[in-house]
Design a protein around this nucleic acid. Sequence first.
DNA 1: GCCAACGTTGGC
DNA 2: GCCAACGTTGGC
Length: 151
Amino acid sequence: MAKWLAKTEPSECSIDDFTNKPDKAIVWEGVRNYQARNFLRDMKTGDEIFIYHSSCKYIGVAGIVKVAREAYPDPAQFDETSPYFDGKSAKDNPRWSAVDMVFVSKFPQIITLDQLRSMPELEYLALVQKGSRLSVMPVSDAEWKAIKSLQ
DNA sequence: GCCAACGTTGGC
DNA sequence: GCCAACGTTGGC
């Protein structure tokens, strides 16, 4: 089973939104980057995903969720009141996808960027590349193990 | 708040 | 197809 990492601003959606409702799936919407979207579309039910908190006080990997529903048209792209509305997306050929995710675990402490950078196994992970803005990325088994070992 | 790095847009 | 201009991301 493939493994992934997804970035989120905790003010938008944090690991605590999952822990607050551990049995409820959360719609992962608003991805507006083609490379990230394509990775979303590759996700399979049950795939596990690291949740990374960005642009906040405590930056780093906060926990794990898993795919509850595979990619479907992101409803936000057709919602004119949504900041993710995309007037160029056609109903019969939706441009953007969403998946549903459910809670798996929350780390007792955030795994910091410094910790991630200290791991040679993570040298090629897009997350730690300078200037990388990719918000959804695949994680190899070796990388997954390395990140989990930092807990 | 700053600013470097990035992805997208649009004129040509 | 090129590339400058622009808006956004995201760590600091």
